[in-house]
């Protein structure tokens, strides 16, 4: 996995903008590019076989053993009915650290890490992304490309992901 800086980072040298620039991990889901706060990312792994959990939604593939902890794996492709979900050694799992929990998410691919100054992220218009706008922080421009900045914490702790118990959710929101 190469994490090359894009040319974009060089254009944000100006002082104040530089201070609030954040780094995002960019991954692809279908034809769209999404960015998530790099600080939420623990690691990136290949897909390995999971242990299925009975009566879980289809997009929750199951749990894996991540160095001794039991970590659920969510397939975002299934969740947002995007690309065909195939599993091979090149399938990528992003391990996230959210609200003191560890969650893995399967995506089509990870492209790079970019630095986006806060002012280059525009509020999301009403548009037809696969992901509900409630979980989108904004749109970031990277030259020709456009990155949809995702509020991954909100998404993963949301009820529709059914990853977190009601009780734990109310606790963490306090």
């Amino acid at each position: 996995m190469t994490m090359t800086d894009t040319a974009m980072t060089d254009t944000t040298v100006k002082g104040s903008a530089r201070v609030v620039a954040r780094e995002f991990l960019v991954f692809t889901l279908g034809r769209e590019e999404y960015g998530i706060d790099i600080l939420k990312v623990q690691e990136i792994r290949g897909y390995e076989s999971v242990t299925r959990i009975a009566r879980a939604p289809a997009f929750i593939k199951g749990v894996i053993n991540l160095r001794g902890s039991i970590v659920p794996i969510v397939d975002m492709r299934l969740k947002f009915a995007l690309a065909e979900a195939t599993y091979d050694p090149f399938t990528v799992v992003i391990i996230l650290n959210i609200l003191d929990r560890t969650v893995g998410m399967v995506v089509d691919g990870v492209s790079d890490v970019v630095e986006l100054p806060a002012d280059s992220i525009r509020p999301p218009p009403e548009f037809g992304a696969a992901v509900d706008t409630a979980y989108i922080q904004g749109l970031g421009a990277m030259g020709e490309r456009m990155v949809i900045v995702m509020d991954i914490e909100r998404l993963m702790s949301s009820e529709e992901m059914s990853l977190v118990d009601e009780a734990a959710r109310s606790q963490s929101s306090q």
Binding site: T51, I53, I64, N65, I70, R101, V103, L163
Partner: peptide
Amino acid sequence: ETNYRKVEGISGATILGDGQV
């Protein structure tokens, strides 16, 4: 429940010799 939620009929998980859960 550390990283997931309570599952009816399951009290926990363990790791087998081959690393599987």
